[in-house]
Design a protein around this nucleic acid. Structure first.
Lengths: 340, 340
DNA sequence: ACTTTTGATGTAAACGATTACATAATCAAA
DNA sequence: TTTGATTATGTAATCGTTTACATCAAAAGT
């Protein structure tokens, strides 16, 4: 105790400053409620002693934690980490701490998850993982406010905010169409997943809207990973040359990178042999070779919006469903006019 | 109160189960201290009511928060997010929550930072940002244990764990040398920064060890960003062709990507016109065109080690400086034998 | 049969803040 | 001067746990 200057409590300050604990507390939380002279005195002793409030005690009494948790499938994935960045931005501004919980970890069983859902730990929850176990959420009655961002749980009807996949894919396909492509393939993400599913659906819809043909062999389903692009590349190369799609609309940039790189190894060239448009606009898309034409997702903006929405929910404002954010088409060098 | 099932406290459970609060508490924390029969009874009512402990109250009483914070300059950067992934892994395993704090945000002034350093909020701190304001740390006497990972603060002598930059650069340069290159350039990160500085120093050292020449024009300092690579590319291209280094050792993969992409735009080819080795082994390095030869940094391993170390520090075990982790050379397609 | 030990449980005091309420002092209005 | 309002401060209850200590019954030792 002698060395540890942290053991200083509000009591000590009160004593040293010759006031009551209430006054010290007020000096910190409602400075206007205390006279200038005492405030200065209190502040001075606080400064001198290096006192800082015990957040835990404060939280217990105020019955709030000034902390939210974001449950993300994979913080190492740039898409999610940028989203988190946006979230962090808003909350830091509001003096609220952000906890990260990894939903894909083995350690994230439902009892561990329950920790977060039990109101007592956090004031709110943002979930980025649409595949999150239903069981985890289900026993969350009376939990703090929950908001899904980017992905949503298929069955649960919870507040959600996201980016329009429909528009994104439409932009991508129409861009290819405007370049003269009519044989357009799709490398899809997992169809069990909202983004994968929606992009796939939107792809088919846009195609039929443009009266373009579609072939089963032109569509490849996988994960949002390099490896999926690699597999799709082999599949593409294995088609008879007059059977190949002349352009590929990919559900993710990573997939597109895997696709292009593998094609390159196989001796094909993008966009010469096939045009490719990605999805996400990862940081590196602009410095890929060829620079990747892609759909830009405003991740940080989404993160910020989500954070603001959650803030509203925490303040018990009713949830007013926000319009989906608009992605944009970024034209670079991986797409070229169709030259027969 | 009627609807909100979360308002259930340990008192309620005690009453319903016909035991004292102490017994309920023991059932949860020290099950072996309570008889089988009552334990079952208590557990049953807990199950029935959906009670979960109020972590805040528990933390207050136990004087620990089961939470640590990692202060990172940029969670959106893959290097850091992977590191965080490793950290998260270990702590989740130990039922400890991980807070993320962004040190580059304007909102991260020292008063905000103080929140974290004031023991009352977290049990430990991992700092990934070597540039973190000294002032923030200085008034951290009596704060919870602090550990620097990956980067360290130049002046403060605090526990640190990292990856050997010296070895990494040595591997890179010797690889180029073994390919016959003798005119080797370096694109450095910020020299105000431990990794930038150390890689730069190690570069010069290895060069002199190999008796290789060095020229000021062959060294470009910048940030760990695409743009630095771009600038370096222009600088390289502007040299008379017989004055150019034939190989570049880059302090970061992003820099290398920027460099290669820009060179490509200028009509040069890697590795034909110049060999490039990166640093980090970002996820995408393998699917770049050309696939990037680079130094693999075991980020997740570092994260895990850091987490374990901090755990030790929290348990008041003395800090035994760990040996630096070893990076490894990954040979891919961006380097080729020197052909005169 | 009488201690002593053991085990299971209960009682009540912390943990360190916030805040409703009470009190005292000051000031303006009558 | 008296009253009422206003302002500044103090007192003490409270938030929901954990845990030292006390209690008591049953088992064990003598």
């Amino acid at each position: 105790m002698p060395l540890n200057s942290q053991k200083i409590t509000i009591q000590d300050i009160a004593q040293l400053a010759n006031v009551s604990v209430a006054t010290v507390s007020r000096t910190l939380s409602n400075p206007e409620k205390v006279s200038d002279i005492t405030r200065q005195q209190v502040l001075a002793t606080i400064e001198a002693t290096g006192y800082s409030v015990n957040e835990t005690a404060r939280n217990l009494r105020k019955r709030q934690t000034d902390t939210i948790v974001v449950m993300t499938p994979n913080i190492g994935n740039p898409y999610f980490s940028r989203l988190v960045e946006g979230i962090e931005e808003v909350f830091a501004h509001n003096q609220i701490s952000v906890l990260i919980a990894d939903t894909q970890k083995a350690s994230m069983n439902s009892s561990h998850a329950r920790n977060y859902f039990s109101r007592n730990r956090v004031d709110g929850i943002i979930i980025l993982d649409g595949l999150i176990a239903k069981a985890i959420i289900e026993d969350a009655k009376g939990s703090p406010p929950i908001l899904f961002a980017g992905e949503r749980h298929a069955e649960l009807n919870l507040p959600y905010i996201g980016i329009s996949d429909e528009l994104g894919i439409e932009l991508a396909v129409k861009h290819l169409y405007s370049l003269g492509h009519t044989r357009i393939g799709h490398i899809a993400g997992p169809l069990t997943h909202t983004p994968g599913q929606r992009r796939y659906t939107s792809f088919l819809k846009t195609l039929s809207q443009l009266n373009l043909p579609t072939q089963e062999a032109w569509i490849h389903e996988g994960l949002f990973q390099l490896s999926t692009g690699q597999q799709a590349a082999y599949a593409w190369a294995n088609l008879a040359s007059d059977q190949r799609p002349t352009a590929i609309c990919s559900a993710g940039d990573e997939i597109a990178f895997g696709f292009i790189a593998t094609l390159h190894q196989l001796g094909f060239r993008v966009p010469h042999d096939v045009s490719v448009v990605g999805y996400d606009d990862l940081h590196l898309a602009a410095c890929y070779i060829p620079a990747l034409t892609t759909i830009h997702q405003p991740c940080r903006t989404l993160g910020r919006s989500a954070a603001k929405q959650l803030l509203n929910l925490i303040k018990k404002h009713p949830f007013t469903p926000l319009p989906l954010l608009d992605p944009t088409l970024i034209i670079r060098d991986s797409t070229a006019p169709y030259n027969r």
